[in-house]
Amino acid sequence: MTLFGRRLPIATALVTAIAIAAATLAPPDQLQGELQRLMYVHVPTAWVAYLSFAVTLAASVAWLWRRTPRFDRIAASSAEAGVFFTGLAIALGSVWGKPTWGVWWTWDPRVVTTAVMFFVYVGYLALRQATPDPLARARRSAVFGVVAFVQVPIVHMSVVWWRALHQPPTVLKPGAPTIDGRMLTALLISVLAFSLFYLVVLRARVRLAVRTEEVEAALAERDQEPAGNAVLAPQWEKKGLRADV
């Protein structure tokens, strides 16, 4: 069993190549021009962040139900990926915001709620590090993983609920997407490519977690003292008693 597998990375590379071609061939936007192409990386990273946290939610529920260590590993691995993609979405949004909005950062509801989501899931990872006992760690992080997911709908709906600088959703909303067909195609292929990449990373991380556990178990076994080590031989000499009589 290799860490990354064989077929999935090849499929991901293929879809990524198609996505790059589609993003290059799609027409520029009437208003934003070539800048609008940042959408083909910014939107998929945000989508994969949502997806990661949804997987963490599902795996956390599954762990609470079945108590299988596998679900805990999936939940933790997916949260790590989610934190990475949330950070990337904020960074890419910043790059897009500077030329279009005119600022790198603003206290816009969407931007702020996304940053809060980032830090809460960093807290999830910190909680895991702070709990050495595997069972307690799995239980606490499963509850955390379920409760923290409430932020995903808040982040998504923030642009609808509150007055924001960030534009409302284009695709994930009631009604038809308000985007040119070729742009939408390029966007959907990009989303597929990023989702496949997420699957590659998630699977590798889960396998790595399995191996880490194996190594830790082996080390614990090696370091274990031999049986009977705690029993001391009687030391008559120290007490001034002769041992030879």
């Binding site: 284009t170 308000t178 985007i179 040119d180």
Partner: peptide
């Protein structure tokens, strides 16, 4: 200080 708010509609140049 000015920030530009663009909308959620994307279309190629007319």
């Amino acid at each position: 200080t000015m920030k530009v708010k663009h909308d959620e509609n994307y279309r190629p140049p007319a």
